[in-house]
Simulated scan of single mutants.
Amino acid sequence: MSVVKGLIQSEDNGTISFGDYNLEEKSKLSDFGHKGDLYKVKTFKEITKLEKNGSFVYESVPGTAVNDFEITDEGMSFKVEGTGDAQITVELEGDTEYTVFIDDMNAGKMKTNLAGKLMFSVELDNNEPSPVKIVKNQL
């Protein structure tokens, strides 16, 4: 795993990868097509942000690299790496409870706000990828 040199790319498994936390200056790429959607990525050492069809999807402070990013009806999953701990915000379904797994460990149940934003921190260790899985809780 490593930074995504082209800023964003489609993977053979149907997911996308994006972000380069090594960049000193902000870089962006718009109108990247994947499965009928258009993505926009902004990334550098201080922040990484992803939008899908003009709507917010992912943001990390500081910047990160994200691999195998996938959104499903049940939630989302990805692998994230960076040079230090990251505060991550994602957008899911509004006012909904999810269980967050980081490094295959249950980090607890969290509820999105009305806009669907969910915030959590990931302790990143020396550029090693940390798997994140966010699963919608069934009522």
Rank of each mutant, 00 (worst) to 15 (best):
residue 72 T to P: 06
residue 27 S to F: 14
residue 28 K to P: 15
residue 110 M to I: 11
residue 32 F to L: 09
residue 38 L to T: 15
residue 95 D to G: 06
residue 70 E to C: 03
residue 45 K to I: 11
residue 46 E to F: 13
residue 32 F to V: 07
residue 18 F to L: 02
residue 83 T to E: 08
residue 138 Q to L: 14
residue 129 P to Y: 00
residue 41 V to I: 10
residue 118 L to I: 11
residue 124 L to W: 07
residue 97 E to Q: 02
residue 20 D to T: 04
residue 41 V to H: 08
residue 60 S to E: 03
residue 30 S to H: 10
residue 6 G to D: 10
residue 91 E to K: 11
residue 9 Q to N: 12
residue 84 G to H: 08
residue 57 V to N: 03
residue 116 G to M: 06
residue 22 N to K: 08
residue 106 N to F: 09
residue 138 Q to M: 08
residue 109 K to H: 07
residue 45 K to L: 07
residue 42 K to S: 13
residue 8 I to P: 12
residue 59 E to R: 09
residue 104 D to G: 08
residue 70 E to F: 03
residue 125 D to R: 12
residue 119 M to W: 13
residue 138 Q to H: 08
residue 126 N to R: 05
residue 27 S to W: 14
residue 119 M to V: 13
residue 119 M to E: 12
residue 17 S to E: 10
residue 4 V to K: 02
residue 16 I to Y: 04
residue 75 G to M: 00
residue 75 G to P: 04
residue 33 G to K: 14
residue 120 F to D: 00
residue 10 S to V: 06
residue 40 K to N: 13
residue 123 E to Q: 05
residue 59 E to N: 10
residue 33 G to I: 15
residue 135 V to H: 00
residue 114 L to R: 15
residue 134 I to D: 01
residue 27 S to M: 13
residue 93 E to L: 12
residue 16 I to P: 14
residue 138 Q to Y: 11
residue 91 E to M: 13
residue 8 I to H: 05
residue 107 A to P: 12
residue 43 T to C: 02
residue 55 S to G: 07
residue 89 T to S: 09
residue 119 M to I: 14
residue 24 E to N: 07
residue 100 V to W: 04
residue 94 G to C: 05
residue 14 G to A: 03
residue 40 K to C: 09
residue 44 F to Y: 07
residue 120 F to L: 02
residue 126 N to C: 05
residue 127 N to I: 12
residue 126 N to T: 05
residue 68 D to I: 05
residue 110 M to Q: 09
residue 111 K to G: 10
residue 20 D to F: 05
residue 109 K to G: 04
residue 112 T to G: 02
residue 136 K to P: 07
residue 29 L to S: 04
residue 50 L to E: 01
residue 4 V to D: 02
residue 78 F to M: 02
residue 104 D to Y: 12
residue 130 S to T: 10
residue 88 I to Q: 05
residue 59 E to V: 10
residue 76 M to R: 01
residue 21 Y to W: 07
residue 37 D to G: 06
residue 124 L to S: 01
residue 69 F to Y: 04
residue 25 E to W: 12
residue 52 K to A: 06
residue 100 V to D: 01
residue 78 F to K: 00
residue 132 V to G: 00
residue 9 Q to Y: 13
residue 114 L to Q: 15
residue 11 E to L: 08
residue 56 F to W: 13
residue 38 L to E: 13
residue 20 D to N: 07
residue 123 E to N: 04
residue 77 S to Y: 05
residue 84 G to R: 09
residue 7 L to H: 02
residue 8 I to Q: 02
residue 91 E to V: 09
residue 100 V to I: 10
residue 44 F to W: 07
